[in-house]
Simulated assay, not measured.
Amino acid sequence: MDRRFGTAPSAEEMEKIAETAYARLPAQFTEHLGDIVFQVQDFAEPELLREMSIEEPYELTGVYEGIPMSERSVEHSGTLPDRIRLFRLPILLEWCERGDETLEHLIHHVLVHEIGHHFGLSDADMHALEDEA
């Protein structure tokens, strides 16, 4: 387990880790993301959890908010940029529970998962791809 932080990393530190992970992604993916916005918050708000039928706030580590590429049309021009939010405390809990990977690796995993939603992949699609890999 990576202990260099001494204390739990702040939202700003986790955002920098996510930005570094994003910068390392292959250009063939990032060039299709446009002006996507990344944010780190401690937890998802209760409304989002209800909307996603999630009862426990620690179960949601990230969310993609936007219009997947597979659903876009000219009618969507002028809309707000897509957004990926990472939830700090659920990520930290999962990191502690796993104990077998770095925080950077877990943040990268969550980020790639949410980017998958941007490309129109479902959770089932991504789990199948992960299992295949």
Rank of each mutant, 00 (worst) to 15 (best):
A44G: 14
P81D: 12
E71K: 13
E71A: 14
E55H: 10
E75M: 13
L80P: 14
S73W: 02
S73A: 03
R72L: 13
R50A: 13
G62E: 06
M52P: 03
E56G: 10
G66C: 03
E45F: 01
E47C: 08
E55Q: 14
G78H: 08
E51F: 08
E75A: 09
L60P: 14
I67F: 02
R72G: 04
S73N: 04
P81H: 09
V74W: 03
L60Q: 11
G66E: 00
A44K: 08
R50G: 02
L49C: 06
S77P: 01
G66N: 00
I67T: 15
L48M: 14
P81V: 09
S73L: 04
R72I: 06
V74L: 11
H76V: 14
I67W: 01
P81Y: 05
P81L: 15
E55F: 07
E75N: 05
R72K: 12
S77H: 05
L48A: 03
P68R: 00
T79Y: 01
T79E: 10
E45N: 02
L49W: 05
F43C: 04
S73K: 01
E47I: 13
E56S: 12
L49Y: 06
S53R: 14
P57F: 06
P46W: 12
L49F: 11
E71M: 10
S73G: 07
G66D: 00
M52R: 14
E47Y: 05
S77W: 08
L60K: 12
E56Y: 10
M52Q: 15
G78M: 04
S70P: 02
E65Y: 07
F43E: 01
Y64L: 03
L49K: 03
E55I: 10
E56H: 15
E45T: 03
P68T: 06
P57E: 15
E75V: 02
I54N: 13
E75G: 10
L60R: 10
V74Y: 03
S53W: 01
G62W: 02
M52D: 09
V63M: 10
A44S: 15
R72S: 07
T79W: 06
I54A: 06
E56M: 08
S70N: 11
G78S: 14
G78C: 08
